[in-house]
Simulated scan of single mutants.
Amino acid sequence: MEIRVTRDTMSDIYFDALRIRNQVFVKEQGVPYELEVGNALEEASSVHFVLYDDGLAKGTVRLLADLDDKTALIQRMAILKEARGHGYATLLINRLIEFAKENRLNKLELHAQLSAKGLYSKHGFNEVGQVFEEAGIQHIQMERTIH
């Protein structure tokens, strides 16, 4: 098992990330494609993480970092349906936290789907504010300070 990281939106790693996101968000959850991959600047400004098991891409997440502010936004966490329940999301979250420490980030923020809130809570993320709707799905903002 390995997690590959890229900033290159023309790389095979990035295309694997898009394929997973399309499967999970667009096909499974019904998010319009334009919302899922609508902002080319955000895509190009993000760090994309893809988890591979036996050479196959199983999950992805991206990190939109504002390194001047020392805060980064976790976005687009997706695990293929058939790959859920194997701890892949935890591995990706741990890698994001490691990346944040390596890059001296102070805080990670995210908009968690309510169904994933417990996962992030287990990793030290705290709820901030009220439940809101994003792409027709209930979310809650969460954040974690990096030590």
Rank of each mutant, 00 (worst) to 15 (best):
L92W: 02
V26P: 10
L63Q: 07
D12E: 14
Q130H: 11
D68K: 12
V128H: 10
G38P: 09
G118P: 02
N106F: 08
E42M: 12
V37F: 05
L56Q: 12
N39I: 13
I3L: 07
E109A: 07
I79V: 15
Y88K: 06
L80E: 13
V24W: 08
T145E: 04
I13R: 05
E43P: 01
I79P: 02
L114I: 14
K27V: 15
L96G: 01
D16M: 09
E28V: 13
F99V: 08
L92S: 05
G118N: 12
R84F: 15
L35I: 00
E82Y: 10
L80C: 14
Y14C: 01
G59F: 04
G59P: 07
E109Y: 00
F15W: 09
S45M: 14
K122F: 07
F132I: 15
I146Q: 00
R144F: 00
G136H: 09
V131T: 15
S46K: 02
Q23I: 13
I146M: 00
G55W: 05
Y88I: 01
V5L: 11
E102Q: 15
L41Q: 04
E42Q: 05
G129Q: 11
L119M: 04
Y52K: 07
V26D: 04
A72Q: 03
H48R: 09
F132C: 15
R7P: 01
L110C: 06
S45L: 14
T60D: 02
K101A: 08
K81M: 08
F25Q: 07
T6H: 03
M77N: 06
